[in-house]
Amino acid sequence: MVQINLEQREVTLKIVYYGPALSGKTTNLEAIHKLLDPGLCGRLMELDTADDRTLFFDLMPVVFRTESGFTVKVKLFTAPGQVMHDSTRRIILKGADGVAFVADSQMHLHKSNSDSWRGLTKNLKANGLEIGKIPVVIQFNKRDLPNIRSDEEIAMMANNGKEPVFKAVATRGEGVIETLEGILREAWRSLDQNFNMEQKLRIGEESFIRHVIKTKPGSHVQGGGL
């Protein structure tokens, strides 16, 4: 849950990238790190093993200051995807303000996507959170690979659900900023509703989004939303 420290005038939001193993959560963070203004985002902390698989989590903070003098920290985490790290996933999800679920678009990985989603539901519950109540967006990553779920199918399924859906090729940085923007909007709206963020920080949703998603001058980002 968002940490608001009025004395130190600090607000910390936590966004978790969740999804099955090797679906590209770390790649999302790496792309964001490359695309965002280096003056805003801190070092990307990756805790991976030799075979490039996340052992504990990755963390990247994006910090900005509002005109009213508040320091706003948006901390982006990835949860480890491998099945055995379930307790770590639960710890990472603790106090999350939003979840970006990174699904693998490949047809044959449908089951790992759904298993991971069920795990998310269970782990949120263990933290006293509920899947329908916490802001969640879904990203279909690896759109450049063969044998993937079709755009039409994804569009149709997205229409039936309430979670915003994005398409991405994280290795090329496509769609990652859109996904980030999507989850930030969802998270902001939910927090504003519960904690009156706009009044406390004296910034609106658009201003919040513009502050975080300040891309590096000259970096080209392709759209990935539906």
Binding site: K14, L59, F77, R90, K94
Partner: peptide, 11 residues
């Protein structure tokens, strides 16, 4: 998770 750990270690 135990309630006394209200604050996540990550926060």
């Amino acid at each position: 998770l135990s309630p006394e750990q209200g604050e996540s270690v990550l926060q």
